[in-house]
């Protein structure tokens, strides 16, 4: 078990966005999180690296690191939790004043203070891997959406996280650019990365994931292997959601 989440609760003011979420992520597994907008799936992902601080609950990692959110977090806990995961955003959020290479080296160089020659080699390797070896010195505005998102993935990989988080990584892309980003994620899957992906691409979720979670109104409605949740869902809400996505009228 890489990470075990227990009793995770998050509210924005009066509005409860996550209600008592329990969840296990196995080492090397890929978790796909699906559900209608406003179901809390993005908030769940953001809680995993404390971009949102949960109100209640507990994370337990396989190395014994444990965070309990019932009391205020210490800075050290936040730092350690963030080190464990890399985040890929829907709108990329690249640093516009830095080149693709500088976007990728920023974390290892400035935060982790690793030696410069080592970091540049690492960043070049990662950018080559995501197919941007020839674009390293371009600025984000000189790249297409798909290329920008691949830089986003490279930036997250460079901090050597144990868990990769993807928040609707292809939702902002033109349809013809979706494939190149999904391919990079599939490559990572084949390398054995542990990942959690919020997505609307059901076919992709089915192909790549080991476990699917369907969320609605801040709760996990159904979870299981992709063929079970996506092909023969047991709960009515899951069935309705899938029907609406597959046959939009």
């Amino acid at each position: 078990m890489f990470l075990s989440v227990k009793g995770l609760t998050k509210a924005f003011g009066e509005l409860e966005v996550l209600k008592d979420i329990n969840l296990d992520i196995e080492e090397g597994n890929i978790l796909a999180i699906i559900g209608p907008s406003g179901s809390g799936k993005t908030t769940l992902l953001r809680c995993l690296n404390v971009l949102e601080v949960p109100n209640k609950g507990e994370f337990t990692f396989d190395d014994g690191f444990k965070v309990n959110f019932d009391k205020p977090m210490r800075k050290k806990e936040i730092t350690e939790l963030r080190r464990k995961s890399g985040m890929v955003f829907q709108s990329y959020n690249l640093f516009p004043h830095k080149t693709a290479l500088e976007n990728v080296t920023e974390g290892p160089l400035i935060v982790q203070k690793r030696p410069k020659s080592e970091v540049i080699e690492l960043a070049e390797n990662i950018l080559n891997k995501v197919g941007l070896g020839d674009k390293m010195n371009l600025y984000p505005h000189q790249l297409s959406g798909g290329q920008q998102q691949r830089v986003g993935i490279a930036r997250a990989l460079a901090i050597k996280p144990q868990l990769m988080l993807f928040d609707e990584p292809t939702s902002a892309l033109d349809p013809e650019l979706v494939g190149e980003v999904l391919k990079v994620i599939k490559d990572l899957a084949n390398e054995g990365w542990t990942m959690a992906i919020v997505t609307h691409e059901l076919k992709f979720a089915e192909q790549v994931s080991d476990q699917v979670i369907f969320m609605d109104e801040g709760q996990i409605v159904e979870q299981g292997p992709p063929e079970a949740v996506l092909r023969s869902p047991q709960k009515e809400r899951t069935q309705q959601f899938l029907k609406r996505i597959l046959n939009p009228e």
Partner: peptide, 27 residues
Amino acid sequence: IPKGQWEASQTIGMSYSQALRRIILPQ
């Protein structure tokens, strides 16, 4: 400066002052 810039800085492990100095203020 969009909130996403602060968030991206945080997710690569930056402190408030690192994010301010290297990411936010230049923009």
